[in-house]
Design a protein around this nucleic acid. Structure first.
Length: 426
RNA sequence: GUCCCCAUCGUCUAGCCCGGUCUAGGACAUCAGAUUUUCAUUCUGAUGACACCGGUUCAAAUCCGGUUGGGGACGCCA
């Protein structure tokens, strides 16, 4: 039975790389009908904070990653680590230096790791110094507590980042000394920023929380992360998690570090947004609106109409707020360049004046009726429809781009449309 | 510095394990055209890669060695 684990340290927010590690562990457990356990590595009492733990758990759940049972906390197991260290001292395999317990590393031994992703990796213990197990302050070191707890939890496979590859021989030494069986290891290459350097804020965000706030859908982020280092072996790009858990194979994982490309993530997010049913999108948009404005007073049916118009063109939920402000307030932003180009000339003002006069007579303010009016006017005035469309768009929305003009006008409503057109024509 | 991992279009990748079907396929991005008499969507097309050197072989993106480049680790951090 496969047993894998997540071992976050609550000393910061959930990093995008940790999220990927969590995802692959979850996938592995799902694929082989095993269990995923959660262990909180809070041995550093100074840096560990409850708010970080809560945030990490929130983010994992948001991503759709769930685990078996209650998490275990390393901070509650200091006695276990100390007992194990004492045992090694009694056996003569460790010594004390002040309050610290230190493990003697046998020299000139070859340690082989049969890594699930990299294959056979060989280390020589000459490269490894004696290892601290228990620090002077009584807390265990990472490598020591990690081994003891993984054994305690009966972990069969450890899937983690490449930064732990060189910890592996040290841990294997502990497994041996403690008379425990080592699990299988799989080390995934790290995610880098587009410039090849460590992922940081300037690459678009390092924590899952930032992406959530920006309006990325968890399913899109998961899909994107899935494709970073793994591929189904075909040309598929959009792979929902339910499908991934059926076809996931760790043998298809590459040992190559990947660069985090926010442009592709944005594309993927747009795909997921466009495919999402309006009813499911609505609450997410409302949340985004209230996060931006403090409160969202817009009635559902009105919001829904606008969502329908914009769901194919937003890449993130937060973009929606910026793109649609003219539907919800008269104090909407005005693009300078667009206003300059389409609203300043006498000709534009005349067109707006004429068009608004014709629209006023419409009893049926539907997009098809508006369009008909627009085309008829263009024909009679020997204008291109675009000459009417552009100024009108800018006049009523303040933007050069947006949803289809006539649909937009219908949703905005006759009185608002006329009011704004007249104001611009004046 | 020492040890370890890695190397296909700008990016993510397929192919590599089991050499020939690869004049290297797809996606994102970019550019161009069509459609939308608007932006987006959609469609079509274009640009664009096997890091380098050597070896093995009739044949190498695929196997081997080296070089270069990138990354990671060398903490009483995790």
């Amino acid at each position: 039975m496969v047993r894998v684990r997540l071992a976050p340290s609550p000393t910061g927010y959930l990093h995008i790389g940790s999220a990927r590690t969590a995802l692959f562990n979850w996938l592995y457990a799902r694929r082989y009908k095993g269990k995923l356990l959660l262990r909180i590595e809070d041995t550093d009492r100074v840096r560990s904070e409850e708010r970080f733990l809560n945030e990490i758990i929130t983010d994992l759940k948001w991503l759709g990653i769930d685990w078996e049972g209650e998490p275990i906390y390393q901070s509650k197991r200091f006695d276990v680590y100390r007992d194990a260290a004492e045992g090694l001292i009694k056996q003569g395999r460790a010594y004390r230096e002040g309050e610290a317990y230190i493990f003697k590393v046998e020299k000139a031994r070859v340690i082989e790791v049969d890594d699930m992703i990299h294959g056979k990796v060989v280390f020589n213990t000459n490269e490894i110094k004696d290892q601290v197990m228990i620090k002077s302050d009584g807390s265990p070191t990472y490598n020591f507590s990690c081994v003891i707890d993984d054994a305690h939890l009966l972990i069969t496979h450890i899937i983690r980042g490449d930064d732990h590859l060189s910890n592996t021989p040290k841990q294997i030494l502990f497994y041996e000394a403690l008379g425990l069986e080592a699990p299988q290891f799989g080390h995934m290459p790290l995610i880098m920023g587009m410039d090849g350097a460590k992922l940081s804020k300037r690459h678009g965000g390092v924590s899952v929380e930032e992406y959530r706030r920006e309006g990325f859908l968890p399913e899109a982020l998961v899909n994107y992360l899935l494709l970073l280092g793994w591929s189904p072996g075909s040309d598929r790009e959009i792979i929902p998690i339910e499908e991934a858990e059926k076809v996931f194979d760790i043998n298809n994982m590459k040992g190559v570090q990947a660069k985090f490309d926010i442009a592709k993530l944005r594309w993927m997010n747009g795909e997921y947004i466009a495919a999402k049913p309006d009813k499911e999108l609505l609450p997410l948009i409302k949340k985004q609106m209230s996060d931006a404005a403090g409160i969202c007073r817009i009635p559902d049916d009105k919001l829904l109409e606008v969502v329908k118009l914009y769901k194919v063109r937003m890449k993130t939920l937060s973009e929606f707020v910026r793109m649609t402000d003219h539907f919800f307030t008269d104090d909407y932003s005005m693009e300078e360049k667009a206003a300059q180009k389409y609203l300043t000339s006498a000709e534009s003002k005349n067109i707006l004046h004429e068009f608004s006069a014709r629209l006023e007579k419409l009893r049926d303010f539907s997009h098809s009726a508006i369009e008909e009016t627009c085309r008829l006017m263009a024909e009679e005035k020997k204008l291109k429809a675009a000459n009417v469309i552009h100024p009108t768009r800018v006049a009523i929305s303040g933007k050069a781009a947006g949803a289809g003009l006539f649909e937009m006008m219908e949703v905005l409503g006759k009185s608002k449309v006329l009011e704004r057109m007249r104001k611009a024509a004046a």
